[in-house]
């Protein structure tokens, strides 16, 4: 007899069920029930934000090099659990070839951002010319707690390519998984759990984004929100983001990869450091 897996949510490094006790069935294309998933509530969102805020200190204060190592570790663990992801992707209705391609691309994405972790600050920072006796430089700092509405049509790669640049930059995250393709998301949370990622750095909720995303957008303790183009919902979310001047990034495509994706979730800090004199041919600092 096949033992069906219970898909739970991931908050603060543990896997609870939704506090609301509500579930929704996930159907295959043939109409059979594949799994029951948590229909997360606004209180789950609240708990996830508290966990993410609490984890922000430890995660952002880790050395950039160490964060890179941890991202690489996620790739290693994902590699070892490939088989499970193939199966879940196929269950959710895509072919074996496409499934293999998607898992491979996700691993590549992790390794890509693992490499950037201790380099993006150097690349994106600058020393600025100013007309006073100051050494003036700008550097990047993580924004804080980031809400991520994972792409609806890409179960694993979409989630990975949206989440990992946030982590790479030292942010902590609350991820709202794809409503119709949530299996890989929950299993990916298990991968994170096994990969030296401290509890609370990533929190993952399943359920209806129409119910949970507005709570996240209005939450005063969330600093940024990321999603693909989600039409009308996106418009109302951007209005809800105004109260705490939350940055809302909407990508036209769910799957993107690059340095810019890290920088979008950073704040620029500029320092004016007094020096003796300006100009002249020799450096004064």
């Amino acid at each position: 007899m096949e033992i069906l897996k219970t898909y739970k949510i991931y908050i603060g490094g543990s896997f609870p069920r939704t506090e609301s006790g509500r579930y929704y069935p996930l159907k295959s294309s043939r109409g059979e029930t594949i799994a029951n998933l948590c229909l997360s509530s606004r209180k789950d969102v609240r708990n996830a934000v508290v966990a993410a805020r609490k984890a922000f200190g430890t995660w952002s204060e880790k050395t950039a090099f160490n964060r890179g190592q941890i991202l690489y570790r996620i790739a290693e663990i994902l590699e070892g659990r490939k088989g499970q992801f193939f199966e879940e992707l196929i269950k959710q209705g895509i072919g074996r070839k496409a499934a293999e391609k998607e898992v491979q691309a996700s691993i590549d994405c992790l390794v890509y951002y693992a490499g950037w972790a201790d380099k993006y600050v150097a690349v994106a920072s600058s020393v600025n010319p100013v007309s006073s006796n100051h050494f003036n430089f700008s550097t990047l700092e993580p924004m804080g707690v980031v809400g991520i509405i994972a792409p609806q049509e890409s179960s694993l790669l979409g989630l990975v390519s949206m989440l990992i640049p946030a982590l790479c930059g030292g942010n902590t995250a609350i991820v709202l998984a794809s409503e119709n393709l949530p299996l890989c998301a929950v299993t990916f949370a298990e991968v994170l759990h096994a990969s030296d990622v401290p509890g609370g750095v990533v929190n993952l909720l399943t359920g209806s984004i129409h119910e949970t995303a507005p709570v996240l957008a209005a939450h005063m303790d969330v600093n940024a929100l990321v999603s693909e183009d989600i039409g009308e919902l996106g418009k109302s979310l951007s209005i809800a983001c105004v109260d705490n001047l939350k940055r809302y990034i909407q990508y036209s495509s769910g799957i993107t990869q690059g340095l810019q994706e890290i920088i979008e979730l950073q704040e620029v800090k500029t320092t004016w450091h007094p020096i003796e004199k300006i100009g002249g041919a020799t450096s004064t600092y």
Binding site: R46, V49, V215, A218, H219, M220, D221, N244
Partner: peptide, 9 residues
């Protein structure tokens, strides 16, 4: 307000 608050404020 209906919004969850942040200790920043």
């Amino acid at each position: 307000s209906g919004r969850y608050q942040s200790s920043d404020y």
